[in-house]
Protein backbone atom coordinates (compact mmCIF):
# COMPACT_ATOMS: atom_id res chain seq x y z
CA UNK A 1 0.00 0.00 0.00
CA UNK A 2 1.14 3.57 -0.76
CA UNK A 3 3.04 5.53 1.84
CA UNK A 4 0.60 7.61 3.88
CA UNK A 5 0.26 11.30 3.00
CA UNK A 6 1.90 13.21 5.82
CA UNK A 7 1.27 16.72 4.57
CA UNK A 8 -1.98 16.85 6.51
CA UNK A 9 -2.51 14.55 9.50
CA UNK A 10 -5.63 14.56 11.66
CA UNK A 11 -5.89 12.62 14.90
CA UNK A 12 -9.37 11.73 16.09
CA UNK A 13 -9.58 11.14 19.83
CA UNK A 14 -7.57 12.93 22.51
CA UNK A 15 -7.14 10.07 24.95
CA UNK A 16 -3.84 8.46 25.83
CA UNK A 17 -3.49 6.88 22.36
CA UNK A 18 -4.15 10.11 20.45
CA UNK A 19 -1.92 12.27 22.62
CA UNK A 20 1.05 9.90 22.66
CA UNK A 21 0.86 9.49 18.87
CA UNK A 22 0.66 13.28 18.47
CA UNK A 23 3.70 13.66 20.72
CA UNK A 24 5.69 11.16 18.64
CA UNK A 25 4.65 12.91 15.42
CA UNK A 26 5.60 16.34 16.74
CA UNK A 27 9.01 15.06 17.81
CA UNK A 28 9.49 13.95 14.16
CA UNK A 29 8.47 17.34 12.83
CA UNK A 30 4.83 16.67 11.91
CA UNK A 31 2.23 18.95 13.47
CA UNK A 32 -1.14 17.17 13.40
CA UNK A 33 -4.52 18.56 14.32
CA UNK A 34 -6.52 16.75 16.99
CA UNK A 35 -10.29 16.41 17.00
CA UNK A 36 -12.21 15.21 20.03
CA UNK A 37 -15.83 15.41 21.04
CA UNK A 38 -14.91 16.90 24.40
CA UNK A 39 -13.16 20.24 24.94
CA UNK A 40 -10.90 18.82 27.65
CA UNK A 41 -9.93 15.51 29.30
CA UNK A 42 -12.74 14.07 31.39
CA UNK A 43 -14.72 11.03 32.47
CA UNK A 44 -15.93 10.36 28.91
CA UNK A 45 -12.50 8.90 28.14
CA UNK A 46 -10.99 5.63 29.40
CA UNK A 47 -7.69 7.39 30.03
CA UNK A 48 -9.39 9.46 32.73
CA UNK A 49 -10.02 6.29 34.72
CA UNK A 50 -6.64 4.66 34.18
CA UNK A 51 -4.65 3.32 37.11
CA UNK A 52 -1.45 4.79 35.68
CA UNK A 53 0.62 1.79 36.70
CA UNK A 54 3.66 1.22 34.52
CA UNK A 55 3.88 -2.40 35.61
CA UNK A 56 4.85 -4.66 32.71
CA UNK A 57 6.16 -7.46 34.93
CA UNK A 58 3.04 -7.72 37.08
CA UNK A 59 0.85 -7.54 34.00
CA UNK A 60 2.66 -10.51 32.48
CA UNK A 61 0.68 -12.67 34.91
CA UNK A 62 -2.10 -12.66 32.33
CA UNK A 63 -0.72 -10.68 29.39
CA UNK A 64 1.14 -11.85 26.31
CA UNK A 65 4.88 -11.42 25.73
CA UNK A 66 4.83 -8.00 23.96
CA UNK A 67 3.41 -6.38 27.09
CA UNK A 68 6.68 -6.96 28.97
CA UNK A 69 8.97 -6.29 26.02
CA UNK A 70 7.29 -3.06 24.89
CA UNK A 71 5.83 -1.99 28.22
CA UNK A 72 9.20 -1.93 29.98
CA UNK A 73 10.11 1.18 27.95
CA UNK A 74 7.01 3.07 29.04
CA UNK A 75 8.39 4.59 32.25
CA UNK A 76 11.28 6.22 30.36
CA UNK A 77 8.92 7.62 27.75
CA UNK A 78 6.58 9.15 30.30
CA UNK A 79 9.45 10.54 32.35
CA UNK A 80 10.98 12.13 29.25
CA UNK A 81 7.71 13.74 28.19
CA UNK A 82 6.02 14.56 31.49
CA UNK A 83 8.54 14.24 34.36
CA UNK A 84 5.68 12.76 36.37
CA UNK A 85 6.95 9.21 36.82
CA UNK A 86 7.47 7.75 40.29
CA UNK A 87 9.94 4.89 40.15
CA UNK A 88 9.08 3.17 43.38
CA UNK A 89 8.23 -0.31 42.17
CA UNK A 90 5.15 -2.39 42.90
CA UNK A 91 4.35 -4.35 46.03
CA UNK A 92 2.26 -7.49 45.56
CA UNK A 93 0.62 -8.94 48.65
CA UNK A 94 -1.82 -11.64 49.67
CA UNK A 95 -3.63 -12.46 52.88
CA UNK A 96 -2.14 -15.47 54.72
CA UNK A 97 -4.92 -17.77 53.51
CA UNK A 98 -4.28 -16.76 49.88
CA UNK A 99 -0.57 -17.64 49.81
CA UNK A 100 -1.24 -19.97 46.90
CA UNK A 101 -2.12 -16.89 44.84
CA UNK A 102 1.27 -15.40 45.64
CA UNK A 103 3.05 -18.58 44.54
CA UNK A 104 1.05 -18.64 41.30
CA UNK A 105 1.79 -14.97 40.61
CA UNK A 106 5.51 -15.53 41.22
CA UNK A 107 5.55 -18.47 38.81
CA UNK A 108 3.94 -16.48 36.04
CA UNK A 109 5.94 -13.25 36.35
CA UNK A 110 9.57 -12.13 36.55
CA UNK A 111 11.82 -9.32 37.87
CA UNK A 112 10.67 -9.47 41.48
CA UNK A 113 12.17 -10.29 44.84
CA UNK A 114 10.23 -12.06 47.57
CA UNK A 115 9.83 -9.85 50.64
CA UNK A 116 9.14 -10.78 54.25
CA UNK A 117 7.32 -8.90 56.98
CA UNK A 118 10.26 -6.67 57.87
CA UNK A 119 10.98 -5.81 54.25
CA UNK A 120 7.32 -5.06 53.57
CA UNK A 121 7.24 -2.74 56.54
CA UNK A 122 10.38 -1.00 55.44
CA UNK A 123 8.76 -0.35 52.05
CA UNK A 124 5.32 0.63 53.37
CA UNK A 125 5.29 1.32 57.13
CA UNK A 126 1.57 2.15 57.05
CA UNK A 127 0.74 -1.48 56.35
CA UNK A 128 1.56 -1.94 60.05
CA UNK A 129 2.72 -5.56 59.94
CA UNK A 130 -0.49 -6.89 58.49
CA UNK A 131 1.32 -8.77 55.74
CA UNK A 132 4.11 -11.29 56.18
CA UNK A 133 4.81 -12.32 52.58
CA UNK A 134 4.91 -10.47 49.33
CA UNK A 135 6.67 -9.83 46.05
CA UNK A 136 8.47 -6.60 45.23
CA UNK A 137 8.87 -5.50 41.60
CA UNK A 138 11.55 -2.83 41.97
CA UNK A 139 11.71 -1.85 38.29
CA UNK A 140 8.08 -0.80 37.96
CA UNK A 141 6.71 2.72 38.16
CA UNK A 142 3.51 4.74 38.26
CA UNK A 143 2.18 8.16 37.36
CA UNK A 144 -0.97 10.23 37.76
CA UNK A 145 -2.80 9.68 34.45
CA UNK A 146 -4.96 12.80 34.47
CA UNK A 147 -1.98 14.98 35.17
CA UNK A 148 0.04 13.23 32.46
CA UNK A 149 -2.73 13.71 29.89
CA UNK A 150 -3.01 17.41 30.76
CA UNK A 151 0.75 17.81 30.46
CA UNK A 152 0.87 16.21 27.00
CA UNK A 153 -2.03 18.36 25.81
CA UNK A 154 -0.42 21.52 27.03
CA UNK A 155 2.93 20.69 25.44
CA UNK A 156 1.30 19.81 22.13
CA UNK A 157 -0.67 23.05 22.13
CA UNK A 158 2.54 24.99 22.81
CA UNK A 159 4.14 23.30 19.80
CA UNK A 160 1.32 24.41 17.53
CA UNK A 161 -1.01 21.42 17.59
CA UNK A 162 -4.55 22.63 17.07
CA UNK A 163 -7.27 21.01 19.20
CA UNK A 164 -10.79 21.06 17.76
CA UNK A 165 -14.04 20.08 19.46
CA UNK A 166 -16.19 18.21 16.98
CA UNK A 167 -17.79 14.89 16.02
CA UNK A 168 -15.22 14.06 13.40
CA UNK A 169 -16.38 12.84 10.00
CA UNK A 170 -13.53 10.44 9.37
CA UNK A 171 -14.51 9.58 5.78
CA UNK A 172 -14.60 13.26 4.82
CA UNK A 173 -11.30 14.00 6.56
CA UNK A 174 -9.67 11.06 4.78
CA UNK A 175 -10.26 12.71 1.41
CA UNK A 176 -7.99 15.58 2.49
CA UNK A 177 -5.13 13.74 4.17
CA UNK A 178 -4.23 11.02 6.63
CA UNK A 179 -6.59 10.34 9.54
CA UNK A 180 -5.47 8.49 12.64
CA UNK A 181 -8.47 7.09 14.46
CA UNK A 182 -7.75 6.85 18.20
CA UNK A 183 -11.31 6.80 19.49
CA UNK A 184 -11.00 3.63 21.55
CA UNK A 185 -14.31 1.94 22.31
CA UNK A 186 -16.22 4.62 20.40
CA UNK A 187 -14.69 3.28 17.19
CA UNK A 188 -16.32 -0.13 17.69
CA UNK A 189 -18.70 0.13 14.72
CA UNK A 190 -15.71 0.72 12.41
CA UNK A 191 -13.14 -1.65 13.87
CA UNK A 192 -13.49 -5.36 13.30
CA UNK A 193 -13.03 -7.53 16.39
CA UNK A 194 -12.96 -4.71 18.91
CA UNK A 195 -14.90 -5.33 22.11
CA UNK A 196 -15.49 -3.47 25.35
CA UNK A 197 -14.30 -4.75 28.73
CA UNK A 198 -16.07 -3.00 31.57
CA UNK A 199 -14.02 -1.65 34.43
CA UNK A 200 -15.12 -0.06 37.69
CA UNK A 201 -12.86 1.93 39.99
CA UNK A 202 -12.95 4.25 42.97
CA UNK A 203 -11.04 7.28 44.10
CA UNK A 204 -10.69 7.60 47.86
CA UNK A 205 -9.22 10.21 50.14
CA UNK A 206 -7.56 8.85 53.24
CA UNK A 207 -5.04 11.39 54.56
CA UNK A 208 -3.81 9.22 57.44
CA UNK A 209 -2.40 6.65 55.00
CA UNK A 210 0.87 7.16 53.16
CA UNK A 211 1.78 4.61 50.52
CA UNK A 212 4.76 5.15 48.25
CA UNK A 213 3.89 2.77 45.46
CA UNK A 214 1.07 0.76 43.90
CA UNK A 215 0.01 -2.16 46.02
CA UNK A 216 -1.68 -5.18 44.49
CA UNK A 217 -3.68 -7.50 46.68
CA UNK A 218 -4.00 -10.95 45.18
CA UNK A 219 -7.24 -12.73 45.86
CA UNK A 220 -8.87 -15.63 44.02
CA UNK A 221 -12.13 -13.71 43.66
CA UNK A 222 -11.37 -10.01 44.02
CA UNK A 223 -7.88 -8.97 42.90
CA UNK A 224 -7.32 -5.29 43.65
CA UNK A 225 -4.75 -2.57 43.14
CA UNK A 226 -4.31 0.66 45.02
CA UNK A 227 -2.32 3.45 43.41
CA UNK A 228 -1.27 6.43 45.53
CA UNK A 229 -1.98 9.74 43.86
CA UNK A 230 -0.37 11.89 46.55
CA UNK A 231 -2.06 14.12 49.14
CA UNK A 232 -3.82 11.14 50.69
CA UNK A 233 -5.70 10.32 47.49
CA UNK A 234 -5.82 6.74 46.24
CA UNK A 235 -7.16 5.08 43.15
CA UNK A 236 -8.72 1.66 43.68
CA UNK A 237 -9.23 -0.62 40.75
CA UNK A 238 -10.41 -2.36 38.90
CA UNK A 239 -13.01 -4.86 37.92
CA UNK A 240 -12.89 -6.61 34.54
CA UNK A 241 -16.20 -7.68 33.12
CA UNK A 242 -16.81 -8.89 29.58
CA UNK A 243 -19.51 -6.39 28.79
CA UNK A 244 -19.56 -3.08 27.01
CA UNK A 245 -22.41 -1.68 29.08
CA UNK A 246 -20.46 1.03 30.80
CA UNK A 247 -23.06 3.33 32.20
CA UNK A 248 -23.18 2.36 35.87
CA UNK A 249 -20.98 0.67 38.43
CA UNK A 250 -22.69 -2.17 40.29
CA UNK A 251 -23.08 -2.47 44.04
CA UNK A 252 -21.37 -5.87 43.89
CA UNK A 253 -18.25 -4.44 42.25
CA UNK A 254 -17.99 -1.44 44.54
CA UNK A 255 -18.45 -3.62 47.62
CA UNK A 256 -15.78 -6.02 46.40
CA UNK A 257 -13.28 -3.21 45.78
CA UNK A 258 -13.99 -1.57 49.15
CA UNK A 259 -13.73 -4.88 50.99
CA UNK A 260 -10.35 -5.55 49.45
CA UNK A 261 -9.14 -2.03 50.32
CA UNK A 262 -10.27 -2.54 53.89
CA UNK A 263 -8.24 -5.75 53.98
CA UNK A 264 -5.12 -3.81 53.00
CA UNK A 265 -5.72 -1.23 55.67
CA UNK A 266 -8.65 -0.72 58.06
CA UNK A 267 -7.90 3.01 57.78
CA UNK A 268 -9.81 2.95 54.50
CA UNK A 269 -13.01 2.51 56.51
CA UNK A 270 -12.86 6.22 57.30
CA UNK A 271 -11.85 7.33 53.81
CA UNK A 272 -13.96 9.73 51.76
CA UNK A 273 -15.20 8.31 48.47
CA UNK A 274 -14.34 11.07 46.02
CA UNK A 275 -15.37 9.35 42.80
CA UNK A 276 -16.82 6.12 41.52
CA UNK A 277 -15.85 5.50 37.94
CA UNK A 278 -16.92 3.14 35.23
CA UNK A 279 -15.83 2.75 31.67
CA UNK A 280 -15.34 0.28 28.87
CA UNK A 281 -11.80 -0.56 27.77
CA UNK A 282 -11.28 -1.23 24.06
CA UNK A 283 -9.76 -4.66 23.44
CA UNK A 284 -9.12 -7.18 20.69
CA UNK A 285 -9.42 -10.91 21.26
CA UNK A 286 -5.81 -11.39 22.41
CA UNK A 287 -5.97 -8.19 24.50
CA UNK A 288 -3.09 -6.65 22.52
CA UNK A 289 -3.33 -3.42 20.50
CA UNK A 290 -3.65 -3.37 16.72
CA UNK A 291 -2.96 -0.86 13.98
CA UNK A 292 -5.32 -1.10 11.02
CA UNK A 293 -4.65 0.66 7.73
CA UNK A 294 -7.53 1.26 5.31
CA UNK A 295 -6.45 3.73 2.63
CA UNK A 296 -5.94 7.09 4.27
CA UNK A 297 -7.31 5.94 7.61
CA UNK A 298 -5.02 4.41 10.21
CA UNK A 299 -6.73 3.05 13.27
CA UNK A 300 -4.76 2.54 16.47
CA UNK A 301 -6.84 0.79 19.06
CA UNK A 302 -7.20 -2.04 21.59
CA UNK A 303 -4.95 -0.78 24.38
CA UNK A 304 -7.23 -2.67 26.82
CA UNK A 305 -6.07 -2.19 30.43
CA UNK A 306 -2.61 -1.19 29.22
CA UNK A 307 -3.26 2.35 28.02
CA UNK A 308 -0.39 4.16 29.70
CA UNK A 309 1.83 1.07 29.57
CA UNK A 310 1.58 0.39 25.84
CA UNK A 311 0.58 3.74 24.32
CA UNK A 312 4.22 4.89 23.95
CA UNK A 313 5.11 1.74 21.98
CA UNK A 314 1.95 2.03 19.88
CA UNK A 315 2.66 5.72 19.22
CA UNK A 316 6.21 5.01 18.12
CA UNK A 317 5.00 2.32 15.74
CA UNK A 318 2.36 4.58 14.20
CA UNK A 319 4.81 7.48 13.81
CA UNK A 320 7.53 5.30 12.25
CA UNK A 321 5.02 3.73 9.93
CA UNK A 322 3.73 7.12 8.84
CA UNK A 323 7.11 8.70 8.30
CA UNK A 324 9.53 5.90 7.51
CA UNK A 325 7.04 3.31 6.21
CA UNK A 326 8.40 0.89 8.86
CA UNK A 327 5.88 -1.94 9.20
CA UNK A 328 4.96 -2.32 12.85
CA UNK A 329 4.31 -5.74 14.42
CA UNK A 330 0.71 -4.84 15.22
CA UNK A 331 -0.22 -3.74 11.67
CA UNK A 332 -3.05 -5.18 9.60
CA UNK A 333 -3.72 -3.80 6.12
CA UNK A 334 -7.37 -3.66 5.07
CA UNK A 335 -8.86 -5.78 7.87
CA UNK A 336 -12.38 -7.07 7.33
CA UNK A 337 -14.93 -4.72 8.80
Amino acid sequence: MAKPDISRVTLVGAGVAGLTIATELVSRGIIPQIIDRAPEPGPQSCSWWAGGMLAPYCESESAEEPVVRLGSKAADWWQKHTQLVHRKGTLVLAMPRDRAELRRFAQLTSAFQPVNEAQINALEPDLENRFTQGLYYADEAHLAPRHAIQTLRQQLAEKGVHFMVDDADIAALATEGTVIDCRGTKARPDVHGLRGVKGEMLILKCPELQFQRPIRLLHPRIPLYIVPRGDGVFMLGATQIESEASSHPTVRSVMALLNAAYAISPCFAEADILEIGVDSRPAFSNNLPQIHRCGNVIRANGLYRHGFLLAPALAEMVANYLIHNEEPEWLTINPES
Binding site: R195, G196, I241, E242, S243, E244, A245, S285
Partner: peptide, 16 residues
Protein backbone atom coordinates in the same frame (compact mmCIF):
# COMPACT_ATOMS: atom_id res chain seq x y z
CA UNK B 1 -24.47 -12.80 36.25
CA UNK B 2 -20.94 -11.77 35.42
CA UNK B 3 -20.86 -11.62 31.68
CA UNK B 4 -24.28 -10.03 31.31
CA UNK B 5 -25.90 -10.93 28.04
CA UNK B 6 -29.03 -8.86 28.27
CA UNK B 7 -29.57 -6.03 25.83
CA UNK B 8 -26.32 -4.61 24.56
CA UNK B 9 -24.11 -5.82 27.37
CA UNK B 10 -21.89 -8.79 26.70
CA UNK B 11 -22.91 -9.19 23.06
CA UNK B 12 -19.31 -9.65 21.99
CA UNK B 13 -18.66 -12.23 24.62
CA UNK B 14 -21.82 -14.08 23.69
CA UNK B 15 -20.76 -14.07 20.04
CA UNK B 16 -17.42 -15.53 21.03
Amino acid sequence: RREASTNKAGQDFWQL
